[in-house]
């Protein structure tokens, strides 16, 4: 078992999920409540990584974040000088690639909260923020949790984007799925098997948890 790779993988999944939570929730709430006519385009963009090959996402990410490009300069301004072959780089790729896995369940969860309940809160003199935290969040919570767990589980197994953007640097960008690929290339099937089994077991556990939570949400 490649524990260094396991640690990189876990860090990647945690960072990805955390960033998706911070960026994805407002985006999903906006998508669920807006009447903006261009909403369909934004939704298509969010869903795009679901159908694109990870290599395409990785390729465009590399091109767009080159230091001489505007996005590359913006990233440099927040302290990320380089995307290629770095840990922040693979986090960025993973966030983009997992966007639909988080935002789509979030949006569905927000849409399932009846508008009248929010209006009822407003009419009670409660601020928009407290109506959101006191009514929308608790009611949408099972769906939000589903989105978080799905994107966490999915980013654990990330391969294509990570390989394209991060390469294969032990301790930096070498994740479990890349380590498995390496072991198979080296005909070291026993080591590959152990790591693959660990990923399968983990993913199965996480998905079981999601379905249990969804059941609980439905019972309400």
């Amino acid at each position: 078992m490649d524990w260094t790779a396991a640690w990189v993988t876990l860090r990647l999944a945690l960072w990805t999920t955390g960033i998706l939570c911070v960026l994805g929730l407002p985006l999903a709430y906006w998508l669920a409540t807006t009447r903006f006519p261009g909403r369909g385009v934004i939704e298509a963009l969010v869903t795009l990584p679901l159908v694109l090959p990870p290599t395409v996402v990785g390729f465009y990410l590399l091109v767009a974040t080159a230091p001489e490009r505007p996005i590359g300069q913006m990233l440099a301004a927040i302290g990320i000088d380089r995307v290629a072959f770095t840990f922040p780089g693979i986090v960025l790729g993973s966030v983009l690639f997992n966007l639909p896995f988080a935002v789509r369940p979030f949006t569905a969860a927000f849409q399932s909260v009846e508008r009248r309940l929010v209006e009822a809160a407003w009419c009670l003199g409660v601020s928009r923020w407290r109506a959101f935290t006191g009514v929308v969040l608790p009611l949408a919570w099972p769906g939000i949790l589903t989105g978080l767990v799905l994107s966490f589980a999915h980013s654990l197994g990330e391969f294509g984007v990570v390989l394209m953007v991060g390469g294969n640097i032990p301790g930096v960008t070498r994740t479990l799925s890349i380590a498995i690929y390496d072991e198979v290339q080296a005909l070291n099937y026993a080591a590959a098997d152990r790591m693959a089994l660990a990923l399968v077991g983990f993913a199965l556990g996480v998905l079981t948890l999601v379905y249990l939570l969804e059941r609980k949400g439905l019972r309400r």
Binding site: E114, R116, L117, E119, A120, L139, R220
Partner: peptide
């Protein structure tokens, strides 16, 4: 405001 179907908070 009293809503027609009350809009009670289910949680």
């Amino acid at each position: 405001f009293l809503f027609q179907d009350y809009a009670l908070f289910p949680h």
